[in-house]
Design a protein around this nucleic acid. Structure first.
Lengths: 107, 107
DNA sequence: TTTTATTATCGTAATATTGCAATATTACGA
DNA sequence: TCGTAATATTGCAATATTACGATAATAAAA
């Protein structure tokens, strides 16, 4: 971007944007939907499911993980990703409080 | 992006991503927060408030508006923007149903 | 230890986003 | 109509994102 001014906003504003960014690409939404449907998850399944390359999926998983939305343990050869429900709920709370503060007062 | 594959996802997935994208930049979150606090809103006020140039703010407003999140009427010389609450609630509903379907079953 | 399966990282190309200055457009008031 | 204030658009530069193939790293199995 043209010198992204990311330091002029307050923390709540930036936080909301950071988490929203995770959801701003359909691949990541699809990955999250898929993971949340599974009992456990192997990354290779995601590749077959979504239709992107392994490296691309891996990068998207990194973005999701960096936002704190995943938990994971190792399980045999494959990693087991799952949703970090607590972090999810933080996001939901942040959004809901944003919505609750939002009014339509004109027009 | 490297040939963004936007046609391989189902509609609900894409919809969520499109609306999330509006919130994925703090400038837009700040604009929405500011508008929702006002009884009515004049764009020039936003410019003073957020700290970006008039043309940049105008472009962000266009992104927000294209997603259907604004309503507006003309009021004197200035445009009056306000939040399209109905559309906002659609977004909230979409997110909530996403969260409700989300489980943490492993780890 | 070597092989194999799985996931992460690197390099690179294509595309998208962000931001601003300059300019155009729009609508009101004199 | 002309001037003025407010908003939109255009053109450009800087940066970020997305995607993939190739390759590296890791851990279990042979």
């Amino acid at each position: 971007m043209g010198a992204s001014k990311l330091n002029i906003y307050n923390k709540g504003t930036t936080d909301l944007a950071i988490i929203a960014k995770v959801f701003s690409h359909p691949a990541r939404v699809a990955i999250l939907q898929y993971i949340s449907k599974q009992d456990s998850c192997i990354c290779n399944d995601i590749v077959d499911e979504i239709g992107l390359s392994q490296s691309t999926i891996s990068q998207h998983l990194k973005v999701i993980n960096d936002a704190g939305l995943l938990k994971g343990t190792y399980k045999g050869k494959s990693h087991c990703y799952c949703i970090n429900i607590e972090r999810f709920q933080e996001f939901q709370t942040l959004l809901n409080s944003f919505f609750n503060q939002t009014k339509s007062n004109c027009c």
